[in-house]
Every structure is written in C-alpha cells, then in structure tokens.
Amino acid sequence: MAKTKPAPVESETAIRVRALEAILIEKGLIDPKAIDALVDTYETKVGPRNGAKVVARAWFDPAYKQRLLADATSAIKELGFSGMQGEDMVVVENTDSVHNVIVCTLCSCYPWPTLGLPPVWYKSAPYRARTVSDPRGVLKEFGTILPEDVEVRVWDTTAELRYLVLPKRPAGSEALGEEALAALVTRDSMIGVTVL
C-alpha cells in the first residue's frame, strides 16, 4: 500500500482552461489579474439573487411583468442588471399549462447578469444531452414531477439569446412583500429544473 496519497488527477476541462489561459497571457491578450477580477465578479458580486429580484418584481407588479415578458433585456436593465452574457434576454413564464426548462446543448450559454455563472451540472454532457431528449426524466431527478397535460417546453439556447424562467408564484405567498418574495426564489427554479 502506498504511504503517500496520490496527487488528485486534474480534469480534462481544468487542463484545457489552464492551456487557454497560458496562451492568452503569452499572446498579450489578457492580464492574469483580469481573470481573477472576472472570476471574483461572477462569484461574489453577480449571482442568482439578481434574478430573484427580477422574479419578485414581476410577481409583485403586473405592469413590470408585462414589460419583462415583452422586452426582457430592457425590463431587467430597469433593476440595474445587464451586460456580458445578458445582452439579449428572453424571459419565459411558467403557468398551469406550461413548464419551461433551459439548456444549452452546444456549450453552457447562461444568463450571467441575472444568474451568475452556471452550476457544474448545467455544463455537464449528461444534463445537456438528456434535457432535450428526456426532459421529464431529468426533471424527476431534480424532484420535479409534472402532470402529463402540462407542456414541458425545453429551450435549447444555442444562439445569442439568453433565457430566464419566471417560476410560478408559490401558493400562500399572496401577502408577502417584494423582498420576502425574492427570498423564496431559487436559482434552480429560474433554470426551470425545479418548481417553488
């Protein structure tokens, strides 16, 4: 038996990212400190609490909801969220008859200004392949079981639009204010893999 623990094997993705980073630095295209600043921005400053505020406002203010569904980019910008990977937004609404779920089969397109960086599972090959081919199976694994008469609407966001799901407002939340409503909204419900 070996006395020392073997070094953890670096994943293929990690190796590839390190190689890309090295090339970008070598070619003088990026200062390594800029990479740290980018990671810090999307790990600590921008995240799903932004999206939760958008959802809560839509539940609270019917006129805002109307604007959000008609022109998501502008309506989200009203709350101060815009920019990289959220330049052209679409918000899709869950109702009694439609449940929306977001995936990017080609890579990991995701609305950064409202949700931050995508979770690891969202980028994984099984999620990307199975969400389009067996959405109800994937949803079940997230604990989401929907009646047959509900249309599961899978958005494969492979082009330039970025999508956010407007979940159904939970029953019993009628008396809550905007801030309390925002606290109910989870990241996964805005990807559409869970309901509230």
Binding site: L29, A34, T41, Q85, D88, E160
Partner: peptide, 17 residues
C-alpha cells in the same frame, strides 16, 4: 490587452451580437 480595470466595464456593457 484585457486588464483588471476593464473587467467592470466589459462586464457591465457586454457585447451584443
């Protein structure tokens, strides 16, 4: 060259296609 001071700028503005 992408420098740290540019990060908040490009993050906020993005680049629509």
């Amino acid at each position: 060259l992408l420098t740290p001071d540019l990060v908040p700028v490009i993050s906020a503005s993005g680049q629509s296609a």
